[in-house]
Design a protein around this nucleic acid. Structure first.
Lengths: 236, 236
DNA sequence: CCAATTTTGTTCTCACGTTCACAAACTCCT
DNA sequence: AGGAGTTTGTGAACGTGAGAACAAAATTGG
């Protein structure tokens, strides 16, 4: 009795694939916007900046949505990926911490257009409460529980300073939020069953700096190696 | 003649390790700030939110900076990691695109304190040029080349709308920038030798949404499975 | 209708990353 | 000094992911 349909909710999709599905979704939207109705895995792979074999393998985890010899129907595939990710519905989101970054997030139009709706902005600073940002009033952090219950919020965004991040996360978890996107430069610990993703601006820059330094050192090392080998002469 | 010192510039550090080094650096700074002079791999692993075996293996790629039976000297290890990443020096950075996100980035104090210095803010919008953001004047995008050459900038940050991202990246590459941090929701293509890292707010949310949806479906499926098995009864 | 062509979906192999488990090396206490 | 107790650094096993290569399935042209 192991007949598994292609829409079987129990099939596992590798994490690496899940992380790329939103990229494919965006690339498909761009293709659709430029009037393209059908594309090959090669076309889509280029638009998404990946290898076409990887793209096909990723899509094969969702099901067989292409046609051999033809390619993929852009709108159809787009819908299938959106459904798989879960962004055919709208997800209510709360943002905690309305500093510079919180402002930018509240104003980011990409959330609304991609399946997310900011239902509340919260901050602990009394001076901010009552101000309107991006058309949404800033409310007191204490109101988190009421808001989460009213709108059935599952996803919270932390944009506070580092010191506040853990206590905000604890509160979110206690209230029933099960997915957290953390922009604060701090590690937050959460119990099993709660997902945390971390976006850290300076960590990304540091990773670039490492490679940048190696480029410079590599050039130096190559020069040094050239000198050394010329000093070695033919003395092998 | 294969005597390789522990500071051999040619040893390779796995990419996954490189991505975690900044996390360790931050955790060590936090420990140092609370007056801790020495820590075990277990202590540091908890502070960094990773498994201690992974932490030790990561550090072993840099060299042997710990003492068995004792642990790591916080300041010493911090310096070694900072040197490895390359943030003992200051990296000049330009930010292109001073919208909501560009504002937030310009004001982000974490850059300055972690080895990066914003030397210029650029935008194509004439209305923005001349305004001061975070103490730095916004200048015309055309001035990119002069600024990059004057300050020897190797790292550029793109915070423009998606449509502008590729052309900004092309210009950066042409001028000699070799590392790009891209916040625009678009894939940018660059030649070999140029590193691009991408930070995408809505992609992170979409990944959370996927898992959130699976939690809900999983609960449904579990309920359905329970029903099915009770319907099955003992009919094995 | 059949051969040639195109393109998907999948299999196989290799590389990379994670985790376990333990020997080596250090400190502390008697 | 020597044994007990800690903690690092690393070898080995395991799991996941990437990419090449190819069979299967569709279209196209004669």
């Amino acid at each position: 009795m192991s007949t598994r349909s292609s829409t079987d909710a129990n099939r596992v999709i590798p994490e690496a694939t899940v992380a790329r599905l939103p990229v494919y979704l965006r690339a498909l939207t761009a293709l659709a916007d430029s009037g393209i109705r059908t594309c090959s895995s090669e076309d889509l792979a280029i638009a998404a900046g990946v290898n076409s074999a990887k793209l096909r393998k990723d899509l094969s985890h969702l099901g067989s949505y292409g046609t051999r010899g033809v390619g993929y129907d852009v709108d159809y595939l787009r819908y299938q990926i959106a459904r798989e990710i879960g962004v055919t519905q709208d997800w209510p989101v709360v943002i905690v911490g309305i500093g510079n970054l919180g402002h930018a997030l509240a104003n980011y139009s990409g959330f609304r257009s991609r399946g997310f709706r900011v239902v509340a902005l919260l901050d602990a600073d009394p001076d901010l409460i009552g101000q309107t940002v991006a058309g949404v009033a800033v409310r007191a952090f204490d109101e988190l529980e009421a808001i989460v219950q009213e709108h059935d919020v599952a996803i919270g965004v932390i944009a506070t300073p580092a010191v506040a991040a853990q206590s905000v996360a604890d509160r979110m978890v206690a209230i029933g939020i099960t997915s957290i996107l953390n922009f604060a430069p701090a590690v937050v610990a959460v119990p099993d069953g709660v997902d945390v993703r971390k976006v850290d601006l300076s960590i990304e820059l540091q990773i670039l700096a490492y490679h940048e330094q190696r480029k410079a050192n590599g050039a130096d090392a190559a020069a040094a190696a050239a000198l050394a080998s010329s000093a070695d002469g033919g003395a092998a």
